[in-house]
Amino acid sequence: MLELYGTELSSRLLLGTAQYPSPAILADAVKASGTSVVTVSLRREMAGGRAGEQFWSLIRSLGARILPNTAGCLSVKEAVTTAKMAREVFGTNWIKLEVIGNHDTLQPDVFGLVEAARILCEDGFAVFPYTTDDLVVAERLLETGCKVLMPWCAPIGSALGPVNMTALRSMRGYFPGVPLIVDAGLGRPSHAATVMELGFDAVLLNTAVAKAAYPVGMARAFGKAVDAGREAFSSGMLEPREVAVPSTPMIGRAVFS
């Protein structure tokens, strides 16, 4: 079973809550996926508005654990303050830490990320850093107190899937005891299965489900793919071979000429 910051989770799929066609479809997708963790954010509330209340009420009804994010934060200060505000509103010390370094690629600012992670870990947060597949950055994040790493496999929302398998394989091999969650860039269930087969502990995705033609079906498909990939990894996969090897025994084969 997956354990993150001392909490055991029944599912290895973490699901975002943004961009669904409707709140009802979001709720159905969460249930269909089997996820036990959903990500949420904080945004400005209109004067007299109730948007936040309605969404918060819906999320609480799902029974999933909450992972608030600092999406869109461009500086250490913004990310730290947003994390503290999220802790107060959502009543959890879990935070998906994003410090964005580039508007176009939404690439993490890894320097700011490490600095913000240090501040938040010292303040008692359980930090889930959205990072790249860079091993040195990963080392620094672990040094700050992060117990989980969340490398991208492609830019957020790109649906490209794992663009650098070598880097992901290397990261898995380099940090054997650290929970690694692939966050961002997954487009298809087969992408999720692929990174799970590499031995990643979980995946976090949003757009691939929310923007699918049928989000509920896609949520279910991702849930199955994550389970399949994990079970394959745990079951010892056959290494590829360059030559054919018959699967039917040759001994006892009839000879007709």
């Binding site: 975002g16 809550t17 961009q19 669904y20 954010s41 904080l42 400005r44 948007a51 936040g52 107060e88």
Partner: peptide, 25 residues
């Protein structure tokens, strides 16, 4: 903090952010 809002004195030019739960990835 919520508990400190009643005693928190505002000053001219302060920048206030009021946030609430929203969808996120």
């Amino acid at each position: 903090h919520k508990a400190n809002r009643a005693e928190f004195q505002l000053s001219d030019g302060d920048r206030i952010e009021i946030l609430s739960p929203m969808q996120g990835g």
